[in-house]
Design a protein around this nucleic acid. Sequence first.
DNA 1: GCCAACCAGTTTGTAGTACAAACCTTGAAG
DNA 2: CTTCAAGGTTTGTACTACAAACTGGTTGGC
Lengths: 113, 113
Amino acid sequence: MPGNNDDEPILDRLIHEPGRLAILTVLSSVKDADFVFLQRATRLTKGNLSSHLTKLEEAGLVTIEKRFVNRKPNTNVTLTAIGKERIAHHWDQLERLRNFSEKSLRELPELQE
Amino acid sequence: MPGNNDDEPILDRLIHEPGRLAILTVLSSVKDADFVFLQRATRLTKGNLSSHLTKLEEAGLVTIEKRFVNRKPNTNVTLTAIGKERIAHHWDQLERLRNFSEKSLRELPELQE
DNA sequence: GCCAACCAGTTTGTAGTACAAACCTTGAAG
DNA sequence: CTTCAAGGTTTGTACTACAAACTGGTTGGC
């Protein structure tokens, strides 16, 4: 995409996937969130939420703490510093794409035919 | 996601996929575009551009006209009315997701724990 | 004429992955 | 002690995006 200088793909699939984009975006507006809250907010099934969270943790975008509250399991999730940066960057990239107007197209010599 | 009333998924994968999101967004800022132009604008490989275009056509989001210009094949792509509506709607949905703030979270009774 | 190199795409094979469904574990209720 | 529910995790499969191989017309060299 014009406006980006390098060859790295513009939209990171890890973050772009709808479920994970929802999780990360919700997380970026709260200090932390537990599993049940995230499930309600994102409308994901337990299974999918669980596996998305695992992927996000493996990628270092969230930290997951499992504890017991009222003798019930409670999974608490927070964004890492990297996670905050990456989700913010992703929204920036999306905005760039969206602003890809006819004007900017004309300005790019490599697009001329 | 709160803010949406029904059970249909918020982000349509057909449109959300990075390559197709790029194609549709570029198309929505020009009257029409040919294959080579789209390839430069989206930085997709020929093969991937070709298969994404086929999918978009099958879904009724674009129309594809193949002709010869200067004795060379030329594939011209335009958004259909449905395509225009769907890509606009998708960007709306993304904006909704992004604006999913702590404030709006608090306002939603079904999220209270 | 003939062969090589292009250009403009299409088709195909495979590796990765998102989802639903089945499963697990603990706690409480009857 | 059996059942139900809450809060998750694991598993099997069906889909799909990508790269690589292929196709067909065109032009240029010799």
